[in-house]
Amino acid sequence: MEENNTLERGLTGSSLPKETKKPSFFERAKKHVKKHSLVYLFLVPILGHFIFFYVGPIVFSFVITFMDYPIVGKPEFIALDNWKRFFNDPNAWKSVWNTIMFSVLYILPTMALGLLFATLIHSLKRRWATLFKGVFFLPVVTSFVVISGIWAWMFRGNAEGFVNQFLALFGIQEQLFLSSSSQALMVLAGLSIYKVVGNTMIYYYAGLQGIPDDVYEAAKIDGSGRFKTFFKITMPLLMPIHLYVAITTTIGSFQIFDSAFLLTKGGPNYATNTIVYYMYQQGFTAYDFGYASVLAYVLFFFIFAVSMIQKRYLGKQVDYN
C-alpha cells in the first residue's frame, strides 16, 4: 500500500521536473549583445559609416525621385511626375541607347583581348611573361586624363591627327572621328578598351594559373589538339572568370562617363551622351536632383537585369576533376 502511494505521488508530479520557460528573442539578443559587447562596440563606427554613407543616400535618392528637389528653395512632392518624364524624354532614351551600343562595342572585345593576352603571356617563360604583363598593365595605372589627351590628339578630325596622317599614307581621306556622330562612340569604346584590357588580362592570367597541369597532360595523352584543348577544356574551366569579368565590364560600360566628359561633352548631336553623363547634366548642370535620381535608378535596374542574365548563363560550377 505504501509503495502504491509513493508511486502515485511520483506520477502526480511531485518528483517530475518542471518545464523551463524558453527565453524570448529579445532576451536572447540582450544576452548575446551583453556577452559580445566589446565586439559590437568596435562595429559601431563601421555600421555608422555604412548607414550614413551608403544606406542613407540610397534611401534619400529614392525618396527624392518623387519630388521636385531644387538646390535652392523648398522641395515639393510631385508623385510620379519624374518617372513619367523619363518615359517621355527622347534625350533620356537616346542616352540609354548610346550606353547599350557602347556596351556592345566594349564588353566582348575587352574580354576577348584580355583572354588572348593572358593566354600568350601564360605560354611564355617567366622573364618574358613578367615583362609583357607590365607592358599590357601600364595603361591601367596611367591617368585617364593623360590617356584621353593622347587619344584626342591621335583621333583629331583633321590633317594634324596622327591616325589621319597614317591613313593618308594609304590614300584614305581624312576622318572626323570625335566630330562624327557615327564614329565618336567607337573611338570612346576603343579608349576604354585600351585603358581596361590590362586589368582583364590579369584576371584571366590568374584563372589560367589556377588550372592544374595534369588536366592538360591528360588531354594531350588523349590526342587533343591545341585548339580543341583551348575550347573544350580551358574555356569551360575559366567560367568563373568569364562571369566575374563579364559583370565587372558590364557595370563599367554602363557607368561610362569620364571619356564622354573629357573628349566629346556628349556630342556631336548627342551621339556620345550616355546615361551617366545625362544624369550628370540633369543633376549638376540643371540642378534637377529628383530627375537625376530617377536616371540613377534606371541605370541600377539595367545593370541588375543584365548581371542576372550573365549569372544565369555563365554562373556554372567548375570541377577540375
Results as ranks from 00 to 15, higher is better:
201 M>F: 05
31 K>Q: 13
215 V>M: 12
111 M>Y: 05
91 N>K: 13
60 F>P: 03
128 W>P: 07
168 A>G: 14
97 W>L: 14
209 Q>F: 00
290 G>D: 04
172 I>N: 10
232 K>R: 12
105 L>D: 07
178 L>I: 07
102 F>C: 00
180 S>I: 03
114 G>W: 02
177 F>G: 00
274 T>K: 00
96 V>L: 12
125 K>E: 15
147 I>L: 15
210 G>N: 12
15 S>Y: 11
242 H>L: 02
198 G>F: 11
65 T>D: 01
47 L>H: 05
61 S>H: 02
286 A>Q: 15
138 L>Y: 07
116 L>E: 01
295 L>R: 01
52 F>D: 13
207 G>M: 06
316 K>Y: 12
49 H>C: 14
163 V>I: 15
192 S>I: 02
4 N>D: 11
41 L>H: 01
110 T>K: 01
217 E>K: 09
19 E>V: 13
255 Q>K: 15
286 A>T: 13
202 I>C: 00
203 Y>R: 00
196 V>Q: 10
50 F>P: 06
286 A>P: 08
244 Y>K: 10
289 F>H: 13
172 I>G: 09
173 Q>L: 08
186 M>C: 09
258 D>Q: 09
256 I>D: 06
299 L>T: 13
72 V>K: 10
5 N>I: 05
169 L>N: 15
255 Q>Y: 05
180 S>R: 02
102 F>A: 01
